[in-house]
C-alpha cells in the first residue's frame, strides 16, 4: 500500500513537472512575440488611446502628465524606403482626445538651420504617392532661438500648395541634440474642405490613414518634396472610444500574461515558505 502511494505521488510529480515546463515554453513563445516593438514602414499600426489634450508647444510637461496616455513606438526613417538603410530612429507618440489627433516625433540629431518634420496624410490605407494629399509641416527658421513656422499644405500631383484655411497646429523645440515636434490634427472636421484629408473614426480593418513621417533640411524658402531627406509610413487607426481608460486588446493580453507570470511566481514563493516552515517542524521533531 505504501509503495503504491509513493509511486503514485512520483507519477503526479512527473506530470506536474512536465506541465510546468510546457507552460513556460508556451509563455516564452508568447513573450518573444510581444517583444517585437520596432516598426518599419506601414507594418507599424497604431490605435491611439484617449488622453488629456497636451499643450502643443514643443515641450512635454511631465508634472501635468502630458502625453502619458500616448501610444509610444519607435520608427526608423530611411533615405529610401524601398531600400531601408542608414535609418534615423525616432520616438513616435500618438494619442487622441475625442476631437483631435495628437502626434509627437522626437529624436537626437545634429540639427540643421532650416530643419523640418512633417506629416503627409493619405486619404485611406494606400501608400501610393498620389493618395498623400495633405501635409502638415513644422519648419525651423532659426534653431538657436527655436523659431519655427507651422504650415498646412495641399498636395496637388506632388506639388505643395499652401492651404487657404490652415487646420491643426504644430510646434518644435530643440535642446542640444534633442528635438521634440508636436502636431495636433482635428478629427472628423469639415468634410467638405478639399484641401485637407478628412480624418474619420473607423472600426473595421479597412479604416485608418497612412501617415508618412518626413524629415529634412530645407532651403530658404523651402522646396518640397526636394528637401525631404528621410521618411517612413505608419498606419494610424482612429477609433471612437468613449471610455478613456479602456484597455486595448494588446494591453489586455500583456496584463493577463503579467498576472500569470507574477501570480505563478508568487504562488511558488508562498509554497516554498510553507515548505520551509514544514522543514523547521521536521528538524525539531528529529532533534526531540
Amino acid at each position: 500500500m505504501h509503495k503504491i502511494s509513493v509511486s503514485g505521488f512520483r507519477t503526479v510529480k512527473r506530470i506536474a513537472i512536465k506541465l510546468i515546463i510546457l507552460m513556460f515554453i508556451t509563455s516564452l513563445t508568447v513573450s518573444s512575440y510581444l517583444l517585437v516593438i520596432n516598426g518599419s514602414g506601414a507594418d507599424l499600426e497604431i490605435k491611439p488611446l484617449y488622453g488629456q489634450a497636451p499643450v502643443i508647444d514643443g515641450e512635454i510637461d511631465t508634472s501635468e502628465n502630458e502625453w502619458n496616455k500616448a501610444i509610444k513606438e519607435h520608427l526608423n526613417l530611411y533615405p529610401n524606403e524601398s531600400a531601408p538603410e542608414n535609418p534615423l530612429l525616432v520616438d513616435l507618440w500618438v494619442m487622441q482626445n475625442g476631437s483631435n489627433l495628437y502626434i509627437s516625433i522626437q529624436f537626437s540629431f545634429l540639427h540643421n538651420s532650416f530643419e523640418f518634420v512633417g506629416l503627409l496624410i493619405s486619404s485611406n490605407q494606400s501608400e501610393n504617392p498620389e493618395d498623400f494629399t495633405d501635409a502638415k509641416i513644422v519648419r525651423f527658421s532659426n534653431i538657436s532661438t527655436n523659431e519655427y513656422t507651422y504650415k498646412d499644405y495641399y498636395l496637388n500631383n506632388s506639388i505643395y500648395e499652401e492651404d487657404t484655411n490652415s487646420n491643426g497646429s504644430g510646434a518644435g523645440k530643440i535642446e542640444g541634440e534633442d528635438v521634440i515636434y508636436e502636431f495636433v490634427l482635428p478629427v472628423e472636421y469639415n468634410e467638405s474642405d478639399p484641401e485637407d484629408v478628412f480624418l474619420e473614426y473607423g472600426t473595421d480593418e479597412e479604416s485608418g490613414h497612412i501617415f508618412k513621417i518626413i524629415m529634412g533640411d530645407s532651403t530658404d524658402p523651402p522646396s518640397y518634396p526636394e528637401d525631404i531627406r528621410i521618411s517612413n509610413n505608419v498606419l494610424i487607426k482612429i477609433t471612437y472610444n468613449p471610455l478613456p481608460t479602456e484597455l486595448t486588446q494588446e494591453e489586455l493580453l500583456i496584463l493577463i500574461f503579467s498576472i500569470i507570470i507574477f501570480g505563478t511566481s508568487g504562488m511558488l514563493y508562498v509554497f516554498y515558505i510553507y515548505r520551509i516552515v514544514k522543514l523547521k517542524e521536521r528538524i525539531e521533531r528529529i532533534r526531540t
Binding site: 513573450s31 510581444l34 507570470i261
Partner: peptide
C-alpha cells in the same frame, strides 16, 4: 532552470531589461 525561466519572464514587458 525553473528559477531562471520565472525570473526571465518577469522582464517580458521591456526588451532591454529582458
Amino acid at each position: 532552470l525553473l528559477m531562471f525561466v520565472l525570473s526571465l519572464l518577469q522582464a517580458f514587458r521591456d526588451p532591454i531589461v529582458f
